[in-house]
Design a binder for these strands. Structure first.
Lengths: 191, 191
DNA sequence: CGCTGTCATTCGCTATAGTGGAATCGAGTC
DNA sequence: GACTCGATTCCACTATAGCGAATGACAGCG
């Protein structure tokens, strides 16, 4: 069940952080003072439209307003800037998936020696997906420059239309599998 | 202004991806069919409470439903939070792939004790594909009754619109991964 | 050709979100 | 004390979210 009280508390905190009164927020959001007060007290459940106006008035995204209300079972990292170095070494990759006509799925199992960098891969066409499972050791995954460290058992999904690089930051070998659903680029496209 | 039509379209897409009807989603979410239909068509603005129930019924976070501007790009699942299911018979399966809206890919890693039979799975809809990689031990794969024995390192592809059964004929444990691309015809589906 | 089952939409009704206003209740301040 | 300011709570009222049931729409089947 959705925790209205928690949402209200969070809303009030954000409003106070900005030094706003209910009346001020009301004039910005076009939501009545009484409604704002009710929502902050968890006494009424706003519609998404009203909540979106409130979030906008607070200068944040609607999802941000909700994110902390719901316990997050996953970690989200957004694409940032591109910043990666590549240097191929003595690593080994195994193509697991047989080539099947009409199926654009690739399954590659890779073993990276300690300290080895598998290099950077270009962004695929939008709509491409990639899954990674670390079986052994540690893997450093860079997505458009955003670094994520993974240990054995960890798995990741990411939209593959961003540059992605794999490296083994540890000293012992790292074994990981990559399953990729690759979309063919439509029309002229680079990469 | 909040785009209700977009939210509705997204909701409907997610529901279709899961092969659910309005009635099925209604029974899971405790939201009436008519309300679901209205929201999908952008004709009504649900309250956060209702929207939270819908998101839950779709198996995603509320923020994910709302965050249409920026669909989730990166999802990390730590080893500690992997869903491990212990099936009767002493075998264990781990759902590797995070749930990604719009992507009907399933990645399951299974450990079968010696002599264990994981049982038979029904045929999926035509157009479904399945890949298997044996990491350790031996695996006996039965496809529409035809038996294939696999050893560590072996991999196989098969069109998943046939019945398929997994068993460990040896005495030592068998570890294997299955990547499945499932097409949704209709009706409830089981992994 | 109806009959039957399934899914989606529309319809009538009730519950409640949401408005505007006014009264009330603090805690300061002069 | 009187006055201000912000928040809360009442009120009457309207708009609409949300429900259950009826209605379409559309397939397969005799």
């Amino acid at each position: 069940m959705f925790d209205l009280a928690k949402l209200g508390t969070r809303m009030q905190g954000l409003r106070h952080d900005r030094g706003m009164t209910l009346a001020e927020l009301a004039s910005v959001t076009e939501v009545s003072v009484s409604m704002l007060s009710s929502v902050e007290r968890g006494q009424k459940a706003p519609t998404v439209v009203v909540l979106a106006r409130i979030a906008d008035g607070l200068g944040i995204g609607l999802a941000d307003l909700i994110n902390d209300v719901e316990p997050r079972r996953v970690i989200v990292r957004r694409a940032a800037e591109q910043d990666a170095v590549d240097e191929p070494g003595g690593w080994r990759r195994t193509i697991v998936s047989p080539v099947v006509p009409g199926v654009n799925l690739e399954w590659v199992r890779t073993t990276l020696p300690g300290g080895c960098d598998a290099g950077e891969f270009p962004a695929y066409a939008p709509g491409s997906h990639e899954f990674v499972l670390v079986e052994k050791g540690a893997l450093r995954l860079s997505l458009d420059g955003q670094v994520t460290d993974l240990l054995a058992g960890d798995s990741v999904y990411f939209a593959a239309d961003m540059t992605h690089a794999y490296a083994n930051p540890g000293s012992e070998p790292c074994v990981y599998s990559v399953v990729a659903l690759i979309m063919r680029p439509r029309g002229p496209q680079r990469g």
